[in-house]
Design a protein around this nucleic acid. Structure first.
Length: 828
RNA sequence: GCGCGAGUGGCGGAACUGGCAGACGCAGCGGACUUAAAAUCCGCGGGCCCUUCGGUGGGCCGUACGGGUUCGACUCCCGUCUCGCGCACCA
């Protein structure tokens, strides 16, 4: 097939996209003795349009997937839709279009756009989380986890918008007011459903050590987030009261220096211990704190404030009486909501003590040599002083001994606390998974909730009159749909009401990777046989912004799935990469506001998908941000033209050319060029270094240009081989282009269906190797030495070089360093 | 404040396990082709200095900064600065 003179991407790309689809090139489940590769990208929320971030995300997976297709693996590479969520519902509130309608349209256009980029997806595995066939299994999981005690109802402090009369997310609170209606946002105690993810805190933390192919920044973010902290709890008796205050501290070794105790404003005992005299001040303070939202109270630079309660606590070690305060900086939901303050050895306690003129008592010296002479608090470990029987002990020993003493006295114990909280997943929204619970006044007077029986799943979302139900005001939308809310109690068959809350969409993305493997399976959310065959995911690609939410939640869920017998794996993903951001040409984040958005569709229309793909991959390593550059992208377009011209120029003479005799001279050089590129690209892809893989291909093309005309049969055959290898290595990056090239040179089927060749070892080594010659580590000459030469021969050659003779200047050589195939170094 | 990551030409980046810093590309410059331009092809390309009429030849400096280890450091160690991200009155 004769090539056109010029590279015309448009028609050619459509042709190959249709061919892959018609042939089922990317269908999972082919016989593959080499095994499986599961390549996954984070499923998108289907907004109407793709942006460059999506393009990049999916490309990184696509290169890897295509490579393993060609390596002969059974590759799973699915795509689906995180279709529930706020944007569709907010749009509905604004313009009255039903979220289901909007979502359907958006998926259709998003999917059409995805296809234009030529990704290797198996669309037979597609899932849509807003379909009952999917979310019924969210409900199934909910019921299973309820049985296991992993789901419970609790009271929790949420952001309550006083204008919209609904709960809103943290991101929607701007400067203490609602983003949408600008009314004041308050903290409100509300009941909500929660997953007991904290049961798994330790396991999730420990297993991070095994995730060696995850970026450090992600595992480190998860460690921070989980926030394990070891310390002790200790009881302080309250003078003149039977109540006591239990404090949590990581520095019990400083307890002899405790000069006051501080409670959270909403600590349980505050009301009962406050003295008459202090009552008005404490009441006013507590009321003021209650009126503030948590975000306000913990804002950057918020001043430390507190008041004395009039009560005194007794130090369990010393028996000393210390004043009890309440203050804004103590949080009721961390530790015990009470702290012992040691201003001499804690910076925050020091500030507070200075402000309110509380005493400071030093009990730690940096060493036995004497006290610390710096400013402020000495917060490091050291040696105890003025600490009774513990004086003279190092901090670490003292902590151990003092913890043991507390246990022995029944006054406390070593404890571990966690920053991580249980996962509250109730949402007062319509466009989500209904929580399968009903409330019956007769069977369930405490409103604990009665689970909907499994055989009644799914509890589907009701059809609604959009503009009446999705108003953004008042009670949760589902509460307004009487025909849906009113149901019968599964126990007594009497009247009952459905739970009107829906689930957080993070639930959907907790297990979708397992559902892809058997998207139509009816007996369970996951076909355990398929899970056994294909899990874990070998490569997962997504944005780093999911470090502590999605990537932690789905690790948790994976553990639960294993316990439920659905999957054999402890961890969902072996290797993770998080892609950097594609900024606008001006270096700012792409945004309508800056007018610097580069739409993928405009690039595909003008230059073709292969150029868009090539540029996004060539611009830099996957993890790093880069700024879009039209010029640099045109460079990739130019490169494709260059390859095309090369192939077209030699097509008539070389396509399909064969040669059985020896290869020498130019013919041999051409073969070497091609095989070296093949080696380099292969290794670069394995390392996920796609930018250098493309650079390697460019180098190869440059070298082939320098070969100019080919005339002998050997040269023609070599060029034929080179162009075909070029097509092979181009496949992961520019697949349409690569296939067109291969076809012109005689390929009968898409290259993805043939195999990734092994390079010829004899063709990637040179017979003469350049050696750098150093004297005292400074480069003085370069010499050419036969590849087989040993140390003695190389040394002789180096010593014969006039520049080296001059540099050595007759001085005796103390040491000779020989690095095979690279350099030698004379030490004089 | 704690944790993690990054810092290399005018720009994006490369350098695999400590071994010739700057591959490849963009922008730039020079040449060929052209009546001319574009496109294309070929070549040059870190800085400073010396040398030569000139092509050339040579020296010193150079991977954020200051030290160290080593025959040899972008790479390893110690300290500092800057940027990004995460966590944060977390006891």
């Amino acid at each position: 097939m004769a090539m056109h003179e010029k590279y015309e991407p448009r028609a050619l790309e459509k042709k190959w996209q249709d061919a892959w689809e018609a042939r089922g090139t990317f269908r999972k489940g082919r016989p593959a003795p080499k095994g499986k590769k599961y390549v996954l990208e984070m499923l998108p929320y289907p907004s109407g349009k793709m942006h460059m971030g999506h393009v990049r995300n999916y490309l990184l997976g696509d290169v890897y997937a295509r490579y393993f297709w060609m390596k002969g693996f059974d590759v799973v590479h699915p795509m689906g839709w995180d279709a529930f969520g706020l944007p569709a519902e907010n749009a509905a509130i604004k313009d009255g279009v039903h979220p289901a309608t909007r979502t359907r349209e958006n998926i259709a256009s998003f999917k059409a756009e995805i296809r234009t980029l030529g990704y290797s997806y198996d669309w037979a595995l597609e899932v849509n989380t807003s379909e009952p066939s999917y979310y019924r299994w969210n409900q199934w999981f909910f019921l299973k986890m309820l049985e296991k005690g992993l789901v419970y109802r609790r009271f929790s402090r949420v952001n309550w918008c006083t204008g919209c009369l609904t709960v809103i997310a943290n991101e929607q609170v701007k400067d203490g007011v609602c983003e949408r209606c600008e009314a004041k946002v308050m903290d409100k105690e509300m009941p909500e459903w929660a997953f007991r993810i904290t049961n798994y805190s330790q396991v999730l933390l420990d297993a991070l050590d095994g995730l060696t192919e995850w970026p450090d920044r992600i595992t480190s973010a998860q460690r921070n987030w989980i926030g394990r902290s070891e310390g002790v709890e200790a009881d302080f008796a309250l003078e003149g009261s039977t109540e006591k205050v239990r404090v949590f501290t990581t520095r019990v070794d400083t307890i002899f220096g405790c000069t006051y105790v501080v409670l959270a404003p909403d600590h349980r005992v505050v009301a009962s211990i406050t003295s008459k005299a202090q009552q008005p001040a404490v009441d006013a303070f507590v009321a003021k704190m209650a009126a503030q939202s948590k975000t306000e109270r913990t804002e950057e630079g918020a001043e430390k404030e507190g008041v004395f309660t009039g009560a005194y606590a007794v130090n369990p070690f010393t028996g000393a009486k210390v004043p009890v305060w309440v203050a804004n900086f103590v949080l009721s939901d961390y530790g015990t909501g009470a702290v012992m303050s040691v201003p001499a050895h804690d910076a925050r306690d020091f500030d507070f003590a200075k402000k309110y003129a509380l005493p400071v008592k030093t009990v730690i010296h940096p060493s036995t040599k004497g006290p610390w002479d710096g400013e402020g608090a000495y917060t490091d470990d050291g040696v105890l002083v003025d600490s009774g029987a513990y004086s003279g002990k190092p901090s670490a020993d003292a902590r151990k001994d003092m913890g043991a003493w507390l246990v022995q006295q029944g006054l406390g114990k070593p404890t571990t606390t966690w920053r991580q909280k249980d996962w509250g997943f109730s949402r007062q929204r319509y466009w989500g998974t209904p929580i399968p619970i009903v409330y019956c006044e007769k069977c369930d007077p405490d409103r604990k909730g009665i689970p909907v029986p499994y055989q009644q799943l799914p509890v589907t979302l009701p059809d609604i009159e959009t503009d009446k139900v999705l108003t953004g005001k008042g009670e949760p939308p589902l509460a307004k749909v009487a025909s849906w809310v009113n149901t019968t109690c599964p126990r007594c068959q009497g009247p009952a009401r459905r739970e009107v809350e829906t689930m957080d969409t993070f639930v959907d993305s907790c297990w979708y990777f397992a559902r892809y493997l058997s998207p139509a399976f009816e007996a369970a959310p996951v076909d355990a046989a398929a899970a056994k065959q294909y899990l874990p995911v070998d490569l997962y690609v997504g944005g780093p912004e999911h470090a502590t939410m999605h990537l932690l939640y789905f690790r948790f869920w994976t553990r639960v799935m294993k316990e439920l017998g659905l999957s054999p794996v402890d961890e969902p993903v072996t290797r993770l990469i998080t892609q950097g951001i594609v900024n606008g040409p001006d270096g700012r984040k792409m945004s309508k506001r800056w007018g610097n958005v580069v739409a993928p569709s405009s690039i595909v229309d003008k230059y073709g998908a292969d150029t868009a793909r090539g540029y996004v991959l060539f611009a830099g390593p996957p993890e790093r941000d880069f700024d879009w550059s039209d010029k640099a992208m045109e460079g990739v377009f130019r490169f494709l033209h260059r390859v095309w011209t090369l192939a077209a120029t030699h097509e008539a003479a070389c396509a399909g050319a064969r040669h059985d005799g020896p290869y020498e001279g130019k013919a041999l050089e051409i073969r070497k060029t091609a095989h070296k590129a093949l080696k380099r690209v292969t290794e670069a892809i394995e390392r996920l270094s796609f930018n250098t893989a493309i650079a390697g291909i460019m180098e190869c093309v440059n070298a082939l240009y320098l070969a100019k005309e080919v005339s002998t049969p050997a040269e023609k055959a070599a060029m034929n081989e080179a162009v075909r290898l070029l097509a092979v290595v181009l496949v992961p990056f520019m697949p349409h282009f690569a296939n067109e090239l291969a076809q012109a040179y005689g390929a009968k089927e898409p290259l993805e269906e043939s195999s990734w060749p092994a390079f010829e070892p004899t063709l990637v080594v040179d017979d003469v190797i350049p050696y750098a010659v150093q004297v005292l580590g400074k480069l003085r000459a370069e010499i050419m030495v036969p590849a087989g030469a040993g140390e003695a021969e190389v040394r002789a050659a180096a010593e014969a070089d006039p520049k080296i003779v001059a540099a050595l200047g007759g001085k005796p050589v103390k040491k000779f360093v020989f690095v095979p195939k690279r350099l030698v170094n004379f030490v004089v």
